[in-house]
Simulated assay, not measured.
Amino acid sequence: MQEMTEKLHDFLLEDIDEMSQEWLDSREVEKDSIYTADASSETTEYLRVQNQYFTCKIVKVLIGESLDTLSDWAQEVAAKRAQRGDSLYHSIHHFKKFRLIFFKQIESFFHLHSSSITYEELFLWNKVVNEAFDRMIELFTLYYGQVSEAQSQAQKMLISELSTPVISISDTVGVLPLIGQVDDYKNSDFAKKVMPQAKELNLSCLIIDLSGAPSINTMMTNELFQVIKMLDLLGIDTTITGIRPEIALTAVQLGIDMSKLKTYGKLKDAVNKLLHE
């Protein structure tokens, strides 16, 4: 059994160039994908080198090399794909496509040596190769997800930093525009950012404009009104503009007294009023 496995190993190594070329030739034009058929020659060669290294690793698994050796390659390539913004779908699709090409080469080897190959050997090769491909896809998906999650968290932190700026429009009046989806990730540091900014600018009035926020959840609504109370303790009056009916309803349901709160439908109305007082 070992003799034919080693012959298969050598046969596949000799055909690495052929398998890589067949895979590259099978590409189609895919929008926003590194695998697109109209990629540059540099990208094509880059893919060829990666594919040949991967193929070599899979072939060596046939003669007993551990599946753990696939981890470093999977981590490196998955990170690069995620950082480029290539979709996970395209990568998995091409793993599956190359698996078919790989098995076609095993089939060619079988036809050349059918009289010397037992069904036991054939089943073993099928099992080992499929396990190797499956393990690679699992590792690739895992590492891709980790990098994507890290990127997502970094983007959320950046958005959070940029989404709560207090803008000074006069010596004593500032505006805090809340823009975009105001969800839970802003809750934890919303007050910590707004309070120091308002104090540092020496404001006597802060306009919080909600017209750019399509929705605000219950937790964030509560946080917002807690900030208004804290600003009042600092001697800073708060005016709300662009408040939506659903936000007002949530505030009432939370038991928040809005009767003493200054509100305007439009930001420009509040600005005109406060700047000309």
Rank of each mutant, 00 (worst) to 15 (best):
residue 2 Q to E: 04
residue 180 G to N: 13
residue 106 I to F: 04
residue 136 M to K: 10
residue 2 Q to D: 04
residue 24 L to C: 02
residue 208 I to Y: 05
residue 62 L to E: 01
residue 258 M to Y: 09
residue 57 K to Y: 05
residue 70 L to T: 03
residue 246 E to L: 08
residue 252 V to T: 15
residue 12 L to I: 00
residue 202 N to R: 08
residue 84 R to W: 03
residue 81 R to V: 04
residue 21 Q to K: 08
residue 174 G to A: 10
residue 130 N to Y: 08
residue 269 D to R: 12
residue 49 V to L: 07
residue 265 G to P: 10
residue 52 Q to Y: 01
residue 107 E to R: 15
residue 94 H to N: 14
residue 103 F to A: 03
residue 217 N to R: 08
residue 272 N to V: 07
residue 63 I to G: 00
residue 259 S to L: 05
residue 210 L to E: 09
residue 21 Q to R: 08
residue 125 W to S: 02
residue 109 F to G: 09
residue 94 H to D: 11
residue 127 K to C: 06
residue 23 W to L: 07
residue 163 S to T: 14
residue 128 V to L: 11
residue 56 C to D: 13
residue 14 E to N: 04
residue 206 L to N: 06
residue 30 E to S: 03
residue 202 N to H: 13
residue 172 T to I: 12
residue 222 N to P: 04
residue 58 I to H: 01
residue 242 G to N: 10
residue 74 A to Q: 01
residue 127 K to F: 08
residue 13 L to P: 00
residue 160 S to A: 15
residue 262 K to V: 15
residue 272 N to P: 02
residue 158 L to S: 11
residue 135 R to I: 07
residue 185 Y to E: 09
residue 263 T to M: 13
residue 75 Q to Y: 05
residue 92 I to N: 06
residue 148 S to A: 15
residue 231 L to P: 06
residue 191 A to M: 15
residue 187 N to I: 15
residue 66 S to N: 04
residue 37 A to R: 01
residue 2 Q to G: 06
residue 147 V to D: 04
residue 134 D to E: 14
residue 46 Y to G: 01
residue 54 F to S: 00
residue 236 I to E: 07
